[in-house]
């Protein structure tokens, strides 16, 4: 990891995750019959050198720079300069993932209709620092949009939550 400059290390971890996924994919492929695995295996084994090449472009090494120029006509420094430089803390990202995860969990447990206004309200109030009135206004409009569009107009039975399936009628 020392070869990779610090600002590129998150990318390296992302790439490593992809590499591990591909390795798992290759391993899983061997549980299928030859006809079923031939093509997936070809794809899997092609992926590995490509990922390794990409790893090299992240390094400061000469060979890495050469690969980068070969594939994109740019050195990795030039790419760094053009990249989006927004500060993205892992903590900040995890918090957003958590919000989205909770939204999906909420939908799973209680269904779309109760969770929609709660989520919109909470997000606007606590992440956006909007007034209670404004937040309620948006929450209710979104709920109305979804309810009228899906339940009334499209005759859709929106998911009512796993709790309703267990305890409801």
């Amino acid at each position: 990891m020392k070869l990779i400059p610090e600002h590129r290390q998150p990318t390296a971890w992302f790439l490593l995750a992809i590499l591990l996924t591909i390795v798992a994919f290759i391993a899983l492929s061997y549980t299928y019959k030859p006809n079923d695995r031939a093509f997936p295996l070809m794809v899997g084994y092609t992926a590995i050198p490509i990922i390794l090449l990409d790893f090299l472009t992240l390094t400061k090494t000469k060979i890495g720079q050469k690969i980068s120029v070969f594939f994109s006509a740019k050195t990795s420094e030039q790419i760094d300069q053009e990249a989006d430089t927004t500060e993205r803390g892992l903590g900040k990202e995890l918090v957003v993932f958590l919000w989205m995860g909770l939204l999906v969990l909420g939908i799973y447990l209680f269904g779309f209709l109760p969770i929609t206004p709660v989520f919109v309200f909470c997000w606007m109030k606590y992440r956006g620092a909007y007034s209670v009135r404004m937040s309620i206004y948006s929450a209710v409009s979104t709920l109305a949009f979804i309810y009228i569009l899906f339940e009334v107009v499209l005759q859709y039975e929106l998911y009512a939550g796993v709790l309703m399936e267990i305890f409801g009628t």
């Binding site: 989205m100 939204l103 999906v104 939908i107 799973y108 779309f112 969770i115 929609t116 989520f119 919109v120 997000w123 606007m124 992440r127 956006g128 620092a129 909007y130 948006s138 979104t142 949009f145 979804i146 899906f150 499209l154 859709y156 039975e157 929106l158 998911y159 796993v162």
Partner: peptide, 26 residues
């Protein structure tokens, strides 16, 4: 902060509605 919650929720309803399959939301 207005865009994110509203668009996210509506998008997830869209993901569900296609096959009425809650797993699709995941």
């Amino acid at each position: 902060n207005v865009l994110i919650p509203t668009v996210s929720v509506i998008a997830l309803v869209g993901a569900y509605a296609l096959h009425t399959e809650i797993g699709d939301v995941v």
